[in-house]
Amino acid sequence: MRRPPVQALRGLDLEVPRGQVFGLLGPNGAGKTTLVKILLAIAWPTRGGAQVLGRRPGDVRAKERIGYLPENHRYPPHLTGEQVLHYFGMLSGVRQPERSRRVEALLRRVRMAEWRATRVHKYSKGMLQRLGMAQALLNEPELLILDEPTDGVDPIGRREIRDVLLEQRGRGVTIFLNSHLLSEVERICDRVAILKEGRLVRQGGVEDLTRPSSVYQVEARGLPADALARLAAAFPGLRAAGGRLELAGDLSSLNRLIDALRRDGAEIAAILPRKESLEDVFVQVVGEGETP
């Protein structure tokens, strides 16, 4: 019995310029991991092609310049953290004494130096992720491909991994990040692409996708109880949301609202233009069914 074939990616056309931090988003089964696997020649496309660092996927010379952290990675359980780094360093072609120097520096950088002599089967998920980051950086890659790098990592560990990624960005490394943690992606990435059912449904700069909309949040104190209904009648785009007033309208509407609030004796504590988060964009595109 054969399982029916699954079309993981369809008509995908994507380019990631050098030096950018690129986030690949999508719900489970969208084809994100398949795309990463195709880029690394772990899986083959039935049609179409790809180029990584100017070479075909699987080219050994290209792979020498790539660092990869897969999702749910497993390291040989019989090795210690330090041995894992030496093993993958050798596989990546990093020679001694440079390999020892890098292993030492990276163990310190990901704060795993004190666990270096412990076998990896005793590591927690977070420790494995830190070691995984060190492993991916060992060959000082030009392209870093990370599949859920903060999966299972506590908030402090996440911050540390984020700092490492920002350092790499500073070095000019191209980062291809595949993550479910949209807040992380929003903080790190320059550009994102959203996949749904194997198709590319949205791509663009993070700033463009999350640009402020013409919705303002006003935090007013001391507003009389009957004032809200009156204001709602005067301003059709006004609604109360989470203890704040939210006005959909232009700047003159906002100023008129402020005047009205002051007339009613309210004290204005804050006015914020509402910015759409990447999560809002993601939910809109994926959850509410933007057609692929």
Binding site: K37, L40, A41, I42, V60, R61, K63, E64, I66, Y68, P70, E71, N72, H73, R74, Y75, P76, F88, L91, S92, G93, Q135, I145
Partner: peptide
Amino acid sequence: LERGTIDLLLSKPVT
């Protein structure tokens, strides 16, 4: 060939 192991090995510059 276990998932997570093979991915990592195949990502290295070894045929």
